[in-house]
Amino acid sequence: MLISVEVNGEVVTWDVDPRETLIDAIRERARLTGAHVGCRSASCGACTLSLDGLTVKSCCLLAAEADGRTIRTVEDGRTPPEVDDIQEAFIAAQGMQCGYCTPGMVMSVRHLLAQNPDPSDDEIRRGLAGNLCRCTGYVNILKAVRAVRDARLGR
């Protein structure tokens, strides 16, 4: 079936299978491979994208459901190795080891800080609760988010 979606500002039309998930369409049709597939069960958050301004786990969303909607991915407007301040902070604070969870984490941090520019540690933890990291123990991820928060607030 034909669907039309706006991905990172560009409108594309895809002929998707009714059972195709959004993460598969994004990775295989749009060739945007930043978002990863971990569990396909809405648990790990590696596949986190933004749909009409809200973060979603795109392994548990059919591509067909995104018809007519707006998607943002971790790449959004940047060509690697170009990164934003959040990605920069993850690098500086070593907020990643294997990096598998990182694109999903970055999406959640972008939304968290857009909604709440000055989150407490507790609010950061709750904002990232849908993104599992099996490497870092989260300590450096928290450091990275605090660093972006403080830099953006000029602290």
């Binding site: 069960s41 809405a42 648990s43 392994c59 969303l61 059919l62």
Partner: peptide, 13 residues
């Protein structure tokens, strides 16, 4: 299919 947060993990399996 509503939010899919229960049924999509099942369908994926």
């Amino acid at each position: 299919l509503a939010g899919g947060m229960t049924i999509m993990p099942l369908l994926n399996r």
